[in-house]
């Protein structure tokens, strides 16, 4: 019901979004995954009619929202990446204002406010100033505002950035319930693989303004079905080791991680012996070695040669 065709956005000379095609069907939870600067927020801004694409179109039930943004406004809720609230006002005052500009009033407005406050678990704190809230609580009100007018689709731009695991869990669970129990269509943007894996039916992976892969989690991991991952933990970084390991013929990719390195290799390639020998040659101290089935993170690594988060 919400669809983009050949969407493109350039800022001055920089191409932020390039030829993006994606769609949402009713009731779906779709993930948009990509590292910083991939173009996720820009794509969302165009999909929500906030900015006009340089090229391409966005349609809502077949009608172009580039030509007429009003067709989507009442049906769409957007949770922006930043905390877009009036911090010197209370949560209740914020909700009241945003409800009013969506045309809600009187009893209906108060009911909706009570409802969303309940949903984000902040009913008791509704008369506190938003600036006195913790980061996690601000995030929850940020979401609540987008739910007030009971939209059919909700687009969330990294709604869990920079908050504690508990609030994060709360939010993820809430989104899951909205999707499963209320049948709300969700577009969830993140650079946390696990969140997207947990919530979403389908996933788009974005990098450098382009969609580089898409499909269900199974479809995406099957890109690497004939590969496996070797995770090596080292006592300290050995830069020469990376170069040396890349020289081994069967190794597809080598990436340095926080604690050591990660190799993507063909399944059953029995490379461990060679790896040990190279490490030995460089007097590298291995703390642990693990062979794993590839994750979505590895798919991203495989496709771009980079980690999802730097």
């Amino acid at each position: 019901m919400l669809e983009t065709t050949n969407l493109r956005k350039t800022f001055k000379k920089q191409v932020a979004v390039d030829d993006v095609n994606l769609y949402l069907e009713k009731g779906e939870a779709v993930g948009l995954l990509g590292p910083n600067g991939a173009g996720k927020s820009t794509t969302i801004s165009m999909m929500s009619s906030l900015i006009k694409p340089t090229m391409g179109d966005v349609t809502w039930h077949g009608k172009s929202i580039v030509e007429d943004p009003s067709v989507i406004r009442l049906h769409l809720g957007v949770v922006p990446q930043e905390i877009a609230l009036y911090k010197e006002l209370t949560a209740h005052e914020n909700l009241k204002f945003f409800g009013k500009i969506y045309g809600l009033k009187g009893k209906k407005l108060e009911n909706e406010i009570a409802h969303v406050l309940e949903m984000v678990g902040l009913t008791e704190r509704k008369n506190d100033l938003v600036k006195n809230y913790s980061g996690g609580m601000q995030r929850r009100i940020n979401i609540a505002v987008a739910l007030l007018h009971e939209p059919e689709v909700i687009i969330m731009d990294e709604p869990t950035v920079g908050i504690d695991p508990q609030s994060r869990n709360y939010i993820l669970e809430m989104v899951r319930r909205l999707n499963h129990e209320k049948g709300m269509t969700v577009l969830y943007t993140s650079h946390y693989m696990e969140e997207v894996e947990r919530l979403c039916d389908r996933i788009y992976i974005m990098d450098n303004g382009r969609i580089i892969a898409s499909g269900t989690k199974q479809e995406l991991t099957s890109i690497l079905s004939s590969e496996e991952t070797i995770l090596i933990e080292l006592d300290r970084p050995y830069p020469e080791l990376t170069l040396e390991l890349e020289k081994i013929e069967e190794v597809l990719r080598v990436v340095e991680t926080d604690k050591g390195m990660k190799l993507i290799v063909p399944k059953n390639s029995r490379l461990l012996g060679k790896v040990f020998r190279v490490a030995d040659k460089h007097k590298a101290q291995m703390v642990s070695v693990n062979v794993q089935v590839p994750t979505l993170e590895d798919v991203f690594l495989h496709l771009t040669g980079r980690k999802l988060r730097d």
Binding site: S49, L50, V78, E82, A84, L85
Partner: peptide, 13 residues
């Protein structure tokens, strides 16, 4: 800057 402008613009107003 805080983003509330965008929120208001996205409403039917």
């Amino acid at each position: 800057r805080t983003g509330t402008w965008n929120r208001v613009i996205l409403s039917p107003v």
